[in-house]
């Protein structure tokens, strides 16, 4: 499991360049990048027959090989396989349904306050009928407040915070994901905020949604995201003196080999996995 995560950083940079049309990639990287782009396309739903019209992908990882075998022991013939792992990229208008209306109202509110929609919202992603706003962490609290307080938005209920760790998404390793519900309008959306591992700070939203208190403690506990301004950011599930943050991808699952009828079964994170 851990081997496949350690993709060379050079390849990653190449692949990232390859999936951003318009940016010139280094000539040497062209072959790998093209292969990576083509292979990576298997991981996202097809957006149409015209590949050129596809929106830019957000590459979070690049993997090589298959069946978890690496090095000289790899006789699978798949050792040269390079695949990019890309999350659905930003969507273009129209977003569909009420999504446009919400983004319009939010634009109006944020532009009025002087923050500016373009500064606060980095991207709008519509995927699998769900709306995601990727928000700049500096403006998270303001965006949340606007979403809660404006009568046309009124996302009054927060369903907590979830963290995701992408160790190869350089500069955006830690993601905090907020799910909001508007009981008034019957709508749901997601806020996504990222922070680099070297500076894992995200402002706390407890002043807007007090319910996020425990959820932020949980995300701190498991991912090490520091929620600035939280009233008491203590660990919540792990013991107070626990070292490390268990849900990070570089944190091992743990476990011991189990012997059964003479054979030994390795712990789950050391078994052969399909990369």
């Amino acid at each position: 499991m851990t081997d496949e995560k350690k993709a060379p950083t050079g390849e990653k940079a190449d692949a990232s360049a390859a999936v951003k049309p318009g940016e010139s990639a280094p000539a040497g990287a062209q072959r790998t990048s093209a292969a990576a782009l083509e292979a990576g396309s298997q991981n996202v739903p097809a957006t149409g027959p015209d590949v050129g019209a596809r929106t830019p992908l957000e590459v979070v990882d690049v993997r090589t090989g298959m069946f978890g075998a690496h090095g000289t022991g790899d006789t699978s013939g798949y050792g040269g396989l390079v695949r990019t792992v890309a999350m659905p990229g930003p969507s273009e208008r129209p977003y569909g349904g009420w999504f446009d209306e919400v983004v319009d109202v939010l634009t109006e509110v944020l532009d009025e306050s002087g923050t500016g929609y373009a500064n606060a919202v980095e991207a709008v992603v519509v995927d699998r009928t769900e709306l995601t706003l990727v928000v700049a962490r500096a403006h998270l609290v303001e965006v949340a407040r606007a979403l809660r307080d404006d009568a046309d938005l009124r996302f009054e209920l927060s369903l907590g915070v979830s963290g995701v760790h992408f160790p190869h998404d350089a500069g955006r390793e830690l993601h905090a994901v907020y799910h909001l519900v508007s009981v008034t309008h019957g709508r749901r959306l997601r806020l996504e905020v990222t922070a680099p591992e070297s500076d894992p700070h995200i402002p706390s939203t407890t002043s807007v949604y007090p319910t996020n208190d425990w959820h932020e403690r949980e995300t701190w506990d498991f991912f090490g995201i520091v929620f600035d301004g939280h009233p008491a950011l203590a660990r919540i599930q792990m013991p107070d003196d626990w070292p490390g943050h268990p849900q990070r991808k570089d944190y091992p699952l743990g476990g011991i080999p189990v012997e059964y009828k003479g054979a030994t079964v390795p712990p789950p994170d050391q078994r052969r996995s399909y990369s």
Binding site: V44, L159, V164
Partner: peptide, 10 residues
């Protein structure tokens, strides 16, 4: 197992 296209849902 089966592969699931990349992305997130709630």
């Amino acid at each position: 197992g089966f592969r699931v296209p990349a992305g997130q849902v709630f």
